[in-house]
C-alpha cells in the first residue's frame, strides 16, 4: 500500500504536514501554532511498520506487515484467535522482546525512529506507548498509588503534585466520584469495570502518545464495556489508539480504521466503514459477517 491511502480515514486524522516535494517535516515551528496543536510538525503517522515479521522460535507469527497508524486515530485489529493480532500489538511497545525465542524482521517506527534503535530507552518508549490489558491488572497498592505508579517511576511529579495527578486522571476516566472517598483503599474492592478504568487512568497518567489496548473490554459486562468504549472514543485525537478486539461491534463503534488479520497475515485494512461494508477480500467478508469465527 502507499502512504497516501491512509489519509482521509476519518475526521480526526491530522493533515500530513510534510512537504509533498521532499517528504520532509516542515521547518521551524511557529510557537503560537505549536501551542494550538502540539503535534504540528511531527510525522503524520505516529507508528509505522515496515515489512514487519514476527517469529517465536521456528514458528512465524506474522510476516511482511506494512502499516501506518495516523496520529490521533483509533485503529481496530480484528481477526480470529491465533491470527497474530495480539503479538503484533505487543510488539509495538516491545513487550515481546523478552519472550524466549522472539525474533523480528523489518522494523517498527515511532515518530520515524526505530523502536529498536540503540538510542531508544525502553522505559521511555513505554512511557510514550502505553498499554491496557485484557483484564484489569491493578497493582497491590492503594487506588491513588495505582494511578500515580508510573508518574512516580518516571519522576514526572512528586509529593503533593501526585494527589493532583491522581484526581485529574480519575476525573478523566470518570472514576473520581466512586473513588474519592476511598483513595487509600485496595483497588481490588472496585468492580471489574472500575478496575479497568483505574488501569486506564494509570496508563494515561504518564502522558502516552499511543495507547495499545489488548481486548480491553473482553472481561467486562455490557455497561462497563460501554463506559470504557465511550472513554476510548474521547481519547482520540489527543492520543492514537490501537485496539485488539474480538468484538466486531466494538471495532465498528470506536475505530476509524480496521485491520483484519487471518492466519498470520494482514488480509485487509482500511477505513472501518469500508472494511465492514465493502470488504475486498472474501475472507474479510466471511469474518465480518459472522460466517467465520
Amino acid at each position: 500500500m502507499t502512504e497516501s491511502s491512509n489519509n482521509g480515514v476519518g475526521p480526526n486524522v491530522p493533515l500530513d504536514r510534510r512537504d509533498p516535494a521532499t517528504g520532509q517535516a516542515p521547518g521551524p515551528v511557529d510557537p503560537a501554532l505549536e501551542a494550538i496543536d502540539p503535534d504540528r510538525g511531527r510525522p503524520a503517522n505516529v507508528i509505522a511498520t515496515r515489512g514487519l515479521s514476527l517469529r517465536f522460535g521456528d514458528k512465524t507469527i506474522l510476516s511482511g506487515i506494512d502499516m501506518l497508524f495516523p496520529r490521533g486515530t483509533i485503529t481496530a485489529l480484528i481477526g480470529p484467535t491465533g491470527s497474530g493480532k495480539s503479538t503484533f500489538l505487543r510488539t509495538l511497545n516491545r513487550m515481546n522482546d523478552k519472550v524466549s525465542g522472539f525474533r523480528y524482521g523489518g522494523d517498527v517506527l515511532l515518530d520515524d525512529e526505530s523502536i529498536w534503535a540503540s538510542h531508544q530507552d525502553l522505559l521511555a518508549l513505554r512511557r510514550r506507548v502505553g498499554m491496557l490489558f485484557q483484564r484489569p491488572n491493578p497493582f497491590p497498592m492503594s487506588i491513588r498509588d495505582n494511578v500515580v505508579a508510573g508518574v512516580k517511576a518516571h519522576r514526572i511529579a512528586k509529593g503533593k503534585q501526585l494527589d493532583v495527578v491522581a484526581e485529574e486522571r480519575l476525573r478523566q476516566v470518570g472514576l473520581w466520584d466512586a473513588a474519592k472517598d476511598r483513595l487509600g483503599d485496595s483497588p481490588f474492592r472496585l468492580s471489574g469495570g472500575q478496575q479497568q478504568l483505574l488501569c486506564l487512568a494509570r496508563a494515561l497518567a504518564v502522558g502516552p502518545e499511543v495507547l495499545l489496548l489488548d481486548e480491553p473490554t473482553s472481561s467486562l459486562d455490557p455497561i462497563s464495556t460501554e463506559n470504557v468504549e465511550a472513554m476510548l472514543k474521547s481519547l482520540a485525537p489527543a492520543l492514537t489508539l490501537i485496539v485488539v478486539t474480538h468484538n466486531l461491534g466494538q471495532a465498528r463503534r470506536v475505530s476509524h480504521h480496521t485491520m483484519f488479520f487471518y492466519d498470520g497475515a494482514l488480509v485487509e485494512h482500511g477505513p472501518t466503514e469500508v472494511l465492514f461494508e465493502h470488504p475486498r477480500e472474501d475472507q474479510t467478508e466471511r469474518y465480518v459477517t459472522g460466517r467465520m469465527g
Binding site: 522505559l123 512511557r127 498499554m131 497493582f139 497498592m141 505508579a149 496508563a203 504518564v206
Partner: peptide, 23 residues
C-alpha cells in the same frame, strides 16, 4: 498480568519486583 502491567508502564524490573511482585 500485573507484572506485565508494570513493565508496560515503563517500570524497571526492580520496580516491578519491589512494587508489584513482593507486595
Amino acid at each position: 498480568l500485573p507484572k506485565e502491567g508494570g513493565e508496560a508502564l515503563g517500570l524497571t524490573d526492580w520496580e516491578v519486583t519491589r512494587k508489584i511482585t513482593l507486595p
